[in-house]
Design a protein around this nucleic acid. Structure first.
Length: 945
RNA sequence: AGGCGCGUAGCUCAGUCGGUCAGAGUACUGCCUUGACAUGGCAGAGGUCACAGGUUCAAGUCCUGUCGUGCCUACCA
């Protein structure tokens, strides 16, 4: 060999092939002659808020595996990459960065802030794509996009204009979730509610007529006493007898200046059993209350806004409260209520507080002008796409979640009061008219040259994301080659956390605008969590950077990454302690292939992926195993010259060669079935077991002996199977397979510059060999029984005793006698029933189904009438080993007896015989016969010593 | 409150059509540095499949309920 392989797999070396792939255009989506179909995945564009996390790496691995496999299967493939501007998230990050440099983002002119944001985008976007490359992602980088690229922005604007003109977008004053820290509206999806401790205040509103009945007023319960100031009504349940007499009566709102009266009205949303049984109605600051007002237009319930955008008390509050923060105001008002004798009761109360998911601030329902999409009009087609199976979910049950949301869909607030994003293409004149157009010029035309200013809002990020699958492919240019070829895309791979945010909205927009579904399949992945099942998050300090798993990281760097940014020292100390405990020596380098294999094997249909580095270590070992297998093959086949493919007979293939080839087909079939339903874990497991158990532990070990006897055929099998297996694993482990394939492929007579474009293996049924598999199954069983016997008898490893094998085993084992001796470290086989004084085991043989009834199967039946034979080692056990052996015998006997009794009970049941399928009856009968033989043998053994 | 999951070996999880289905990896125990690999080999121990009913000849698997647990949606002021 001119080029020796290192003794251990070195991931970094293998991973260095990436630039070559890229430079040679291996990832290109350009269609080629003779390709068999098209396959496209659009990458869910990562936010340019920083770097990729484990969840991204996980999903990217799966997408890359799909793409690489289809590329090898001969399709034109496009993996469309790109990043998302991620409006609010990025704006927060950029503002924070500026803060560090002493710049107050809020005070910057819009243009200046945007300049900083673009700088940040360049940096972050570069980091993200570098990370993806490091993990092996085979995106068509030449087509990489950003949601705010000029052409994509133009599409966003034109879609907005179109939907506006079609009446699907409108502007209106509506109650929206307002984030008083970010100073923007947020959609209901961006609000997280968690239970928190609060206080329920019971407050008396005096009767306006001065009546002293019922204690002189009505008592309401509230958690937000500060909003009393702008109450518009009191509501009770229409059938609540306690309050019925009060309907229509008026009460005075406490502490208003000048005092205001409001009416007691009936509305069935009030729960008589909760709180005081009656509710104050603050229509401008509560969604329920707003709805009450809409239901009772005749009552003219006032709609008074109490807060500034920062959630401070505005001019509608009495002078003494004006300018106070809402929570400060609450304290003061409670004090004043108490002083005025109107505070009847305070009790601790747990309730859900809505907070902005980005800022963490308590969100305020606020009446503002916003832009909305009439989602309810878009939903039916999106529902139909799923119902008709044009869009299929994997796993299927996520379809229900999708449907449920679409069936209950609300209008979508798409305006955000931010700098960073697609500016809404609407212009206002001084008279309050609005002109929606694709450019200022066009707007001015519509406005007859009036002085205009553009709406200062930008669009929700998800608005542009919803167009991503087709806008990146060239839509609305219907003739664009990529659009025609690759749309609808093949599969969307994403997490369940954004089914609402993104998946449903993409389908809605695509159905409406492109007239078809955006993707055929939706594969919903689980969410990557840490080894304890905690969600990975910066604030928890349990983030793992995927590249640190690939390349390793010292404890120091890890601590710096996790804790440096944290403001609170206590949190910092806790995270440092936890990190030191979890990774006392940092993280060793596992390599991209091992990480990818880990991700694949964790990708079952479960919801949570607990990421455990131990698992990763297992697959790193697997890489090393594969590496060393190749190393062995290369050294064993240094003198091998490939000759053209021939029949098994001409190849000189024996049973083991036919067996390993057959097993390979089976593995290929399993992988194919697994990929078809996105069960990457099953594909990974099939590959793992084939390579480790069948190829390495069994065939390769046998090959060591067979190379001496049947060199050429053994070499051919070793090389051909390994070469195919490398191609089979390539989609999951691209680097190691490319490196090894470069060395192995020439031996196998394969040409080609890269494994990436070599054909993907698919099972060849003619190479499945049931007979060889059955005979090898018998052989393997014999080897395992013999090894167990060795271990039980405590035979030192260096000893090579002879082995007795009963006559009925001869047909199966004689052709493999030398292999048997090699694998069991025995000297020779003596073909007669073991002498009675030696402990022996019973080995079952299996036969190919087709030949089961044929005449020669009978030759292998022993005196018990079942397909077994006896095996013993020519070795006198020591007393100690003997004692242990007899203990084991007892245990086996108990287990055998128990199973046999259970089986016999079943077989004795006439119902079972009558109703169960004959195949099952036969199976159990056979099993019972085998157990009886085993039991007989064990009983004999117990008496012999 | 509704919806969707989950509960299988110490840990992380497979188990598709009800019948070789009590499984894998990892951790653990013993032996082995044998010419691909100690990131390895051989062997071993370890589970009342959360619990209770039901359907069935047959249930980890299907049905009902209970307990535990997680997520999502909507919420009572």
């Amino acid at each position: 060999m001119t080029t020796e392989l290192a003794k251990h797999f070195e991931p970094t070396t293998a991973e260095s092939c990436y630039p070559d792939w890229e430079e040679r255009g291996r990832f290109s989506s350009r269609p080629r002659e003779g390709r068999k179909g098209d396959y496209c995945i659009v990458l869910p564009p990562p936010n340019v808020t920083g770097t990729l996390h484990m969840g991204h790496a996980f999903q990217h691995t799966l997408m890359d595996a799909l793409i690489r496999r289809e590329r090898m299967r001969g399709k034109n493939t496009l993996w469309q990459a790109g990043t998302d501007h991620a409006g609010i998230a990025t704006q927060i990050v950029v503002a924070r960065e500026l803060e560090k440099r002493g710049i107050h983002a809020a005070k910057l002119p819009r243009e200046e802030f945007l300049r900083h944001a673009w700088e940040w985008k360049e940096r972050s976007g570069g980091l993200i794509t570098a990370q993806m490359r490091r993990l092996g992602a085979s995106c068509d980088w030449a087509r990489e996009r950003f949601t705010m690229d000029d052409d994509l922005s133009r599409v966003v604007i034109s879609v907005f204009v179109r939907l506006y003109e079609e009446g699907l977008i409108y502007r209106g004053k509506r109650l929206v979730n307002w984030d008083p820290v970010m100073l923007t509206a947020v959609s209901d999806l961006e609000v997280v509610s968690e239970e928190e401790a609060g206080v329920m205040y019971h407050v008396r509103y005096p009767f306006a007529d001065g009546g002293k009945d019922r204690g002189g007023g009505i008592i309401i319960a509230t958690t937000r006493p500060e909003t009393i100031l702008v109450d518009g009504a009191i509501a009770v349940h229409p059938e609540d007898e306690r309050f019925r007499p009060l309907l229509g009566r008026r009460v005075t709102v406490p502490m208003t200046e000048p005092p205001r009266d409001i009416e007691i009205i009936a509305d069935s949303f009030v729960d008589p059993a909760f709180g005081a049984g009656c509710v104050k109605i603050t229509a401008a600051h509560d969604f329920n209350d707003y709805a009450v007002r809409e239901r009772h237009p005749e009552k003219n319930i006032p709609l008074i806004i109490l807060f500034t955008p920062e959630a401070k008390m505005n001019e509608n509050a009495p002078a003494k409260y004006q300018g106070l923060d809402r929570f400060e105001a609450r304290k003061r008002i409670v004090e004043d209520l108490r002083a005025g004798g109107l505070l009847i009761k305070e009790e601790p109360h747990r309730y859900h507080l809505p907070r902005g998911d980005r800022s963490g601030a308590v969100v305020e329902p606020m009446l503002t002008d916003q832009w909305f999409v009439r989602a309810a009009e878009l939903a039916p087609k999106a529902l139909a796409a799923a119902a008709e199976g044009r869009v299929r979910f994997f796993p299927e049950n996520w379809r229900k979640t999708y449907q449920h949301w679409l069936e209950n869909i609300q209008d979508w607030c798409v305006s955000r009061q931010l700098e960073w994003g697609h500016r809404i293409p609407a212009w206002h004149d001084d008279e309050g008219n609005i002109y929606v157009a694709e450019s200022e010029e066009k707007a001015r035309e519509k406005a007859n040259g009036k002085k205009l200013r553009q709406d200062s809002d930008v669009l929700d990020t998800w608005f542009s994301s919803a167009l991503w699958p087709f806008s990146t492919l060239g839509w609305p240019e219907e003739n664009n080659e990529h659009y025609r070829r690759y749309f609808p895309t093949s599969v969307l791979v994403t997490g369940f956390d954004i089914i609402f945010f993104w998946v449903a909205r993409m389908v809605m927009m695509s159905e409406r605008l492109a007239g078809k579904e955006p993707f055929r399949d939706v594969y919903i992945t689980g969410l990557v969590r840490d080894a304890e099942g905690q969600k990975m998050s910066k604030s928890k300090g349990n983030i793992i950077d995927p590249l640190d798993v690939v390349g390793g990281v010292s404890l120091q760097s890890l601590l710096a990454k996790r804790a440096d940014d944290l403001m609170t020292p206590r949190l910092r100390a806790r995270i440092e302690a936890q990190t030191k405990k979890d990774f006392p020596n940092g993280i060793p380098p596992y390599g991209a292939d091992a990480l990818r294999m880990t991700f694949a094997s964790l990708a079952s249909y479960g919801r949570d992926i607990k990421f455990d580095l131990e698992r990763c270590a297992g697959y790193r070992n697997f890489c090393n195993k594969l590496w060393n297998a190749a190393r062995f093959v290369l050294s064993a086949c240094a003198d091998y010259k490939h000759e053209s493919e021939a029949t098994d007979a001409a190849n000189g293939y024996g049973i083991p060669e036919r067996w390993i080839v057959s097993r390979l087909q089976r593995c290929e079939l399993e992988v194919e079935n697994a990929f078809a339903i996105y069960r990457f874990d099953l594909a990974a497991a099939a590959i793992y077991h084939f390579l480790w158990d069948d190829y390495c532990s069994r065939y390769l070990e046998m090959a060591k002996g067979r190379l001496l006897r049947n060199r050429k055929a053994t070499q051919r099998a070793l090389v051909a199977v390994l070469e195919t297996a490398l191609r089979l694993c390539h989609p999951i482990m691209p680097f190691i397979t490319e490196t090894l394939w470069q060395k192995i492929a020439p031996l196998a007579g394969k040409s080609g510059e890269t494994i990436m474009l070599a054909p993907y293996p698919s099972a060849d049924k003619t190479k499945m060999d049931e007979k060889a598999e059955a005979e090898m199954a018998g052989f393997i069983a014999a080897v395992e029984e013999c090894r167990k016997l060795r271990a039980e008898l405590r035979i030192p490893p260096k000893e090579r005793p002879a082995v007795f094998i009963g006559e009925s085993g001869k047909a199966t084992l004689a052709p493999l006698a030398e292999d048997f001796c090699l694998l069991t470290k025995t000297s020779e086989i003596r073909w007669n029933n073991p002498p009675a004084n030696l402990p022996r085991v019973t080995v079952p043989l299996s036969f190919p189904r087709k030949r089961e009834s044929s005449a020669n199967a009978g030759n292998n039946r022993n005196e018990d009438g079942d397909n077994t034979f006896h095996l013993a080692l020519d070795w006198q056990a020591t007393a100690a080993a003997d004692k242990e052996e007899s203990a084991r015998t007892e245990k086996k006997l108990r287990a055998t007896k128990a199973e046999l009794e259970k089986l016999e009970r079943t077989l004795a049941d006439p119902e079972f015989i009558n109703r169960a399928p004959p195949a099952v009856v036969k199976k159990k009968t056979t099993r019972a016969a085998a157990l009886r033989a085993t039991q007989k043998e064990l009983l004999r053994l117990r008496q012999t010593p």
